[in-house]
Design a protein around this nucleic acid. Structure first.
Lengths: 185, 185
DNA sequence: TGGTCCATGTAAAACGTTACATGATTCC
DNA sequence: GGAATCATGTAACGTTTTACATGGACCA
């Protein structure tokens, strides 16, 4: 059910094909939900069958035709109902932390390397998010309510990446003393 | 495969029954992985069938007998190999952020209420984590390598909850102006 | 001519959730 | 007497992942 909701809030922004949605899930929607194109196409078929979305085929000359999906009134009603239903905190599943929990099994350099790699990736994401913030949300006071809500999801991403970076630094300096006399980087 | 690894690092700590594991997944392991008892029992049967763990039946008088599972050499080898394989950043799936993205559909008070609820829950978790930190890790300098790795997973949880709290505050004060003349709490 | 983008799908396997099922003990 | 804890499972269903499959347009 959760993927359905993520698709619906995306369609609220603009009618999209499955392909468009897949790209949005790789971009801005990806801050808080990920899904592959296979999942998306299947879910779209299911949502259309139950009248939550409708499609319109758009013929194209130089490119394959596409089906543009849009949310129906029934879909909006369903989404609104869900917005009124409280959610639990979302569960965390993190491979890196599982690894750390058993980290004493391997030489310290193994996880130090992985921590450096993660730090780098979080750093990259943070820079991307901050670029989006500057480009699209330069003046928070001037935002429409809709833009304001979406801005907050971006702010969450920024907060999240900053937290990870801070923790990576802490973990690296905590574990570095365990790695005796190694030249790495 | 990921649940398997979470079970294995837990068994590394001490041989456990399915029931024990389920409780650990509700506790310390729950910082970074969640699983229901049904999942755990199924996975244990599978892991035993492939020689990654072994079980020994422990007869008990006043309580039901239990099967204590322990990791085998093959299991340790498999886990070690996985520790050497780099992981991607873990995907985020967060209902609350999906809701915010479509938040303009409902009156501001709806999401303000939900944000307050989430703030409260993150606050509760943070206090729990900090209690564990004080009780079990009072002197970081004195920790064994094994304890040090596990301490870092707790520190990640603390960082995570602090980040969420900070963001909840920001989101609440950003959205509060949208809710005009309402008496809520 | 080899790679990426556009565009949509099928199929199988793995993983996760919900509901059902049992039964003694211990605590309030 | 009722709820919680200990202890283990089955079954059905739903979701996610991984692999396979196709084919034209455009760019270097």
């Amino acid at each position: 059910m959760a993927l359905a909701h993520a698709i619906l809030v995306t369609l609220l922004d603009s009618p999209s094909s499955g392909y468009d949605l897949a790209r949005q899930f790789d971009g801005a929607v990806g801050f808080f939900w990920q899904a592959s194109h296979q999942q998306i196409y299947r879910e779209l078929a299911k949502l259309e069958a139950s009248g939550i979305i409708t499609s319109e085929t758009v013929l194209q000359e130089t490119r394959p035709n596409k089906k543009l999906y849009a949310i129906t009134d029934r879909g909006t009603a369903m989404l609104t109902e869900w917005l009124h239903t409280p959610s639990d905190l979302s569960p965390i599943k993190d491979d890196l932390l599982v690894k750390l929990f058993g980290g004493h099994l391997v030489e310290p350099t193994v996880l130090l390397q992985e921590l450096r790699q993660h730090r780098k990736q979080h750093q990259t994401r943070l820079v991307e998010y901050q670029a989006i913030e500057e480009r699209f949300f330069p003046d928070v006071e001037a935002l429409s309510p809709k833009a304001l809500y979406q801005y907050l999801t971006l702010r969450n991403g920024i907060q999240y990446e900053q937290g990870w970076l801070k923790w990576c630094e802490e973990a690296l300096s905590t574990l570095q003393p365990l790695a005796t006399s190694n030249a790495e980087e």
